[in-house]
Simulated assay, not measured.
Amino acid sequence: MTTAQVESGGAQSVDRALSLLTLIARWGGEEVPMTALTAQSGLSRPTVRRMLLALMRSGLVEQNPVSRNYALGPESYVVGLMAQRRFNLLDFAMDSLKDLAAESGDSSFVSMRRGAYSVCLHREEGSYPIRTQALQVGYRHPLGVGAGAMAILAAMPDEELAMMRQEITPLLAKGYDRYTPEVVDQSIAQCRQNGWALNPGLYLANSWAIGVAIKAPTGDVLGALSIAAIDSRMGEDRQKDLAKMLLREAAKIEAKLRRKLGYT
């Protein structure tokens, strides 16, 4: 075996191990059974087990001795903390969230993409006394559910979007009845045309929202900003006004990211 072949095999093993780590992380801290990892990775059970053993030795993954399921290990937490010190979307977005809530009077949100899901990081309340309760900090929904999550989905390149659609379709079929493939297709097209996503009360009746994507300097979609309000405050003219506010603040956040990561 040549040196190039050895290096190629080693790189493939690293890629496989890291893909399994990502799959486990997508479960949001819950334990993952072996059957799910083999099904979602497309790898054989012996290969998955071999990769998991390597991750366990490094402390990135641990196995429950009773259930035999897998979860993120303590070293994953340490790595996450180190990454957060360099890059924390909430830190970059906090000023914008306050400005959006103050200017609109409604609740503003920042969400971050986590695999096939969008997770709400923060909710900033506006002054308007009647508030929608559809999204709270820590809530996790499949991409496409809600304005922010739809903005994330629609901002993906076509190839990535096609793969993500396959992943979220079964998720949406479980508890998100109004998010049919036809509705998702229409919402993506509308978002791409307008530059912002609209949730017309699909998840929770009378709770509407506008969302825009936030991208990294590399072009990768990181998360989204959104504003939610009751339906009576979401007429067409106001939708456009809110969208302008969100696009303005998303541009500010992206500029901060470029400066922080040395792209300017």
Rank of each mutant, 00 (worst) to 15 (best):
G105I: 04
V110A: 01
L143A: 04
S108W: 02
L81F: 08
N69R: 14
D91H: 14
V66H: 12
R123T: 01
P129V: 00
G126T: 01
R140G: 08
R68A: 06
L90H: 10
Q133P: 00
V137L: 05
R86D: 14
S96E: 04
Y117G: 00
L135D: 01
Y77A: 14
F109A: 03
N88C: 12
M94V: 09
N64G: 06
A101L: 06
R140V: 13
L60T: 02
V79G: 00
A71M: 10
L100C: 08
S96N: 03
L121A: 05
S67H: 09
L89S: 06
D95F: 06
G105V: 05
Q133W: 03
Q84P: 00
G59R: 02
E75L: 08
V66W: 04
Y117D: 04
M94A: 15
L100Y: 02
R85N: 10
R113I: 04
R68C: 02
V137Q: 14
S96H: 06
D106S: 12
S67V: 07
Q84M: 10
I130R: 12
P142Y: 11
S118V: 03
L143C: 06
Y117F: 14
V66G: 03
L81D: 04
V78A: 10
P129W: 02
A102L: 12
A54F: 12
L121E: 02
L53E: 13
G105E: 00
A71C: 10
V78F: 10
C120I: 14
N88F: 10
M112I: 13
T132Y: 01
L97V: 09
L55A: 07
M56I: 07
A102I: 03
Y139S: 12
Y139F: 12
G73D: 10
L52D: 10
L72S: 11
R113E: 03
P129F: 04
R140P: 06
D91T: 15
G138F: 08
K98Q: 15
P129D: 01
T132M: 11
A83P: 02
R85I: 07
L135G: 03
Q63L: 02
G126C: 05
Y70A: 01
M56V: 06
L81H: 08
E103V: 10
L89I: 07
Q63W: 05
L121W: 01
A102V: 07
E103W: 14
N69Y: 08
S76T: 11
V137P: 00
M82D: 10
R85K: 10
G105Y: 07
L89W: 07
Y70K: 00
A71Y: 05
E124K: 15
D106A: 14
Y139L: 12
Q63N: 08
L81E: 13
